[in-house]
Amino acid sequence: MKRILQWLLIGLALAWSLAPVYWMVVTSFKDALEATRPVPTFLPEAPTLANYQGLAGGSLPFLSFFVNTTLSCLATAALAMLIATPAAYALSRGRFRLRGPISQGILVFRMLPLVVMLAPLYLMLLAAGLLDSLAGLVVGFTTFGLPFAVWMMKGFIDTVPIEIEEAARVDGYKKWEILVRVVVPLVLPGLLTTATFVFMESWNNLIFPLSLITTLAKQTLPAAIQLSFTGQFKTDWGGMMAASTVTTLPLMVAFFAVQRSMVRGLTGGAVAGA
């Protein structure tokens, strides 16, 4: 009895998680008229690949969108970790005044509305000549992801016993050597977790690519979805759902690949991060 109830509930939970995804995929195989029927069909009556063909052979460069998104998000994750790790190390181990307020301030900064940052960011990138470039986009994403990355990394580094570092210091290691050779290997799951978070935040970011990129071929996937399917004429639900499916798949794969280390990272360090 108890087992039946358990599986019933699990079934319900699976339905809740997967039904919207099912709807996304099913709609992507409907033609434009069937996708907008006042009474929807639960399975496509006349399944069509037209929406996917539209993505691959249509007038919009979807492959570039995909490459742009992947490159800029990976670069952001790498750059953010490169800056965040030493910064977090300094915050974790340093003994200077204002250490506490700085770590807290960083976190709160992450909660500022993105739109407030947009104007100063735009002016900064204009001055640097980085508008309408993937490099500029990476700078934008990093600005946004960095505070969060520092805060999370500080949590992970805090869990590394200071004694290990002292042993390394006695062995004559320099400060940066301690960080690279001792601390980083110890917090690697945490580092991966943080990088994944930064990656996903960037992948989800809509407003920066919409504002900073003006050449369509340099646009990112999420922005392209908004840009191309909800235009002046109508909302093309079939095409949008096909694009959405294509946008979601790589993230899903990436996600499953890192979930194990994320579990380890999250349970390992974040708690001490307080």
């Binding site: 998680s17 809509l206 979805i225 959405s244």
Partner: peptide, 25 residues
């Protein structure tokens, strides 16, 4: 399978749910 929703990008989630929430259709 339970983790799937997390992998769906926000913009997709938003449009997908708007589509599912439509009054007619």
């Amino acid at each position: 399978l339970l983790l799937v929703p997390w992998a769906v990008p926000f913009v997709v989630v938003a449009f997908l749910f708007r589509f599912m929430f439509l009054q007619d259709g």
